[in-house]
Simulated assay, not measured.
Amino acid sequence: MALQKKIPLRKCVATGEMHPKKEMIRVVRSKEGEVSVDLTGKKSGRGAYVSKTEEAIAVARKKKVLENQLEVKIPEEIYEELIRVVLREQLK
């Protein structure tokens, strides 16, 4: 009997749904308060996960979920980068 590897699940801050970590995008706030999109999932700092869908990103932007989670103002470029990541994934 092969042991199945446990898939790490993360909750989307916008939709509240649980998804495998690989299907999520992590947005991270460093100690210095800098916000960035963390595609590796390895950057240090406070992280929040959002689903790889335009809808989830739109909800996160509208309700300012990421700002609440990370306790910092999210620059517009971050949302634009998230959208680009989603669109790039859809082309694969």
Rank of each mutant, 00 (worst) to 15 (best):
M1P: 02
A2E: 14
A2H: 11
A2R: 12
A2L: 11
A2D: 14
L3F: 10
L3W: 09
Q4A: 12
Q4K: 13
K5S: 13
K6E: 12
I7Q: 14
P8F: 01
P8R: 01
R10E: 02
K11V: 14
K11C: 04
C12S: 05
C12F: 00
C12I: 00
A14L: 04
A14E: 06
A14M: 02
G16I: 04
G16F: 08
G16M: 08
E17N: 14
E17S: 12
E17V: 04
M18W: 15
H19M: 05
H19V: 02
H19E: 09
P20E: 05
E23G: 05
I25R: 03
R26W: 03
R26Y: 04
R26S: 01
V28D: 08
R29I: 06
K31T: 12
E32N: 11
G33R: 09
G33H: 10
E34W: 01
D38M: 03
L39D: 11
T40H: 05
T40N: 05
G41Y: 11
K42N: 15
K42M: 12
S44L: 08
S44I: 13
G45Q: 09
G45W: 08
R46C: 02
R46F: 05
G47F: 06
G47N: 08
A48E: 08
S51R: 04
S51I: 01
T53E: 05
E54A: 10
E54V: 11
A56T: 10
I57W: 01
A58V: 00
V59P: 09
V59L: 14
A60I: 06
A60K: 07
R61Q: 13
K63T: 15
L66P: 06
L66S: 07
E67H: 07
E67Y: 02
E67F: 02
N68S: 15
N68P: 06
Q69L: 08
Q69K: 15
Q69C: 09
Q69T: 12
Q69D: 09
Q69M: 13
L70C: 03
E71K: 12
V72L: 03
V72C: 09
V72Q: 11
K73T: 08
P75R: 01
E77C: 07
I78C: 03
I78M: 01
Y79A: 06
Y79R: 06
Y79C: 02
E80T: 05
E80Q: 14
E81K: 14
E81N: 11
I83N: 12
R84E: 14
V85W: 01
V85E: 09
R88L: 12
R88K: 15
E89A: 12
E89I: 01
Q90Y: 04
Q90I: 05
L91T: 15
